[in-house]
Amino acid sequence: MENLKHELKTKIIEALNLEDIAIEDISDDDPLFGDGLGLDSIDALELIVLMDKDYGIKLTDPKEGKTIFQSINTMAAYITEHRSK
C-alpha cells in the first residue's frame, strides 16, 4: 500500500502539472481538493482518466469521485480493492 501511495503522488504531480509541488509536500490524508492541493474540476476529470488508464477502474458515477478523491489514502484504498491492472 505504501508503494501505491508513493506511485499515486508521482502520477498526480505529473498528470496535473503540479510543478511547484514535491512528493514530500503531499501527506497521505491531505485533502486533494479545496484547501489541500487546490485541484479543480478539470483535475478531477484527469484523475478519472488516470484511474481508467493506469488501474483499469472506470468511474461512471461522479458522486463516487467525491469520496474516492478525498485524499491519497482514500484513492489508494479504492484502487487496491477495485484495480484490474
Binding site: 496535473l16 502539472n17 478539470i42 483535475d43 476529470l45 484527469e46 482518466v49 481508467d52 488508464k53
Partner: peptide, 9 residues
Amino acid sequence: FFPSPAVFV
C-alpha cells in the same frame, strides 16, 4: 484511447 480533459480544454 485516453483523451486528456486538461489538453482538450
